[in-house]
Design a protein around this nucleic acid. Sequence first.
DNA 1: GTAGTTCTGGTTGACAAGACCATAACTTAC
DNA 2: GTAAGTTATGGTCTTGTCAACCAGAACTAC
Lengths: 254, 254
Amino acid sequence: MTTKTNDPRMPANYDPSEFPAFAVTVDVVILTMSNKRLHVLLVRRGVAPFEGMWAIPGGFKRPAETLDEAAKRELAEETGVDSASLLTQLGAYGDPDRDPRMNVVTIAYLAAIRRVGVVVAGADAAEAALIPVSEVLKGKTELAFDHAQIVRDAVERVRVDLELRGIATAFVGPTFTLAELRAVYEAVWGEQLDGANFRRSVLAESGWVIPTGRRARPGSTGGKPAELYRAGRMWKKGAPVRYPQPNDTRKEHE
Amino acid sequence: MTTKTNDPRMPANYDPSEFPAFAVTVDVVILTMSNKRLHVLLVRRGVAPFEGMWAIPGGFKRPAETLDEAAKRELAEETGVDSASLLTQLGAYGDPDRDPRMNVVTIAYLAAIRRVGVVVAGADAAEAALIPVSEVLKGKTELAFDHAQIVRDAVERVRVDLELRGIATAFVGPTFTLAELRAVYEAVWGEQLDGANFRRSVLAESGWVIPTGRRARPGSTGGKPAELYRAGRMWKKGAPVRYPQPNDTRKEHE
DNA sequence: GTAGTTCTGGTTGACAAGACCATAACTTAC
DNA sequence: GTAAGTTATGGTCTTGTCAACCAGAACTAC
């Protein structure tokens, strides 16, 4: 047992020159849409511990960089993307035994990217792949360390930020149809949204999406070609689309 | 010396046994209501650097404790409160030069307490006091390190969590009147709220506040004695009180 | 007693949002 | 070519929510 929950030698007041040393890593939960489902980029660990298991990419923070810079670097190393449309801090994870080797505090970041270009397997990673988040949430894909919890936290964060800040455009391309945008909401929330009402809500907030005047090519199944939009500036407050609240007054057939 | 801000020998791929060492501190932004205004508990630093300046309390994380435990410990050491009504992680701060002595990554926590009991000046702190947050936000009270930014982030967090999760009961006593609860919202948001509408909104959410049947003593200015409530369980989703949206700015588009 | 203050319940009007329908513009199948 | 299917987009209707406002109740101070 390596746990020393109560170390009697630990003084109540620390001497600044004699602090406990920690390793600090910055890990990034990289989310993207693929095939109408939310996916997370995972790497298969090539080294112990948890060798052979899936994990979210990351690495040690360098002393001369900020946390944001470290996250940006990790994202670029892993995907080749150098400018994420969304990259925010998610939280810190520092349980004593989360890494069996040593004391590690991890700062987790959340990244949303439009499309994964090259998926690079780094030095510690034997393989990299996009895994549906549902597989992770259901526990069908086990992750190393406490990374499953981190992914759960990341998805929950996306769910509320989608409603609160409307970060949906981070998941689609530079131009997109409203159906594509709606697919992001539906994938993250797991709810069907009415196309007409969605359109009205999104367009009501001026400056959120901007029509380009051009039209998309209809899909192979036909249909009226949709107008193409591009992302406007982001919100100041409130969001155009709300998470559907079950109306108790709806008809109760069965 | 342990500070090596730029080590050219740092390889791109780290060896796990040779990671850069960081000090990890856990600092707590302790907020409370006093005299109808939001206050933050600050300590005056007794040691260099920033000796004599105000700072938020905190200390080094111990290897055997979790981050949450560390925050709880710091809060107890500083205030004597052992069970905060609200204690959540706020974010991580790790800019390279935020501490001139060495590489320090700080995990900031946000605590809301009902009343400050004993304010203890610790080993590093010569003095402790409650300062109105407005003084910090306006820059009238300068803080050590990047603590001013941390306080700003904490207040912003409270503003949205008040709406999203209804954490207002964390700031009032075990029993309270609706006017007291309303004062929390008004202090944090800086907006006047209609008493009747506030009451309706709060009571609409069942289980959020529970009437005790007793009545408070009217204040010295008279008035009908208000009913006393106690906090129920917290929310699952949505909040009973929404941030007032100015209706006139809503019809700009078109 | 009257005046002032606070709490509490009621009403109303504007607006937001979901359910649903209708039509337009494309596809493929025949 | 026509018919059928699919998607986008605009419309209507109904319901619920919320802020503004009003009125009365219950206290204190004088």
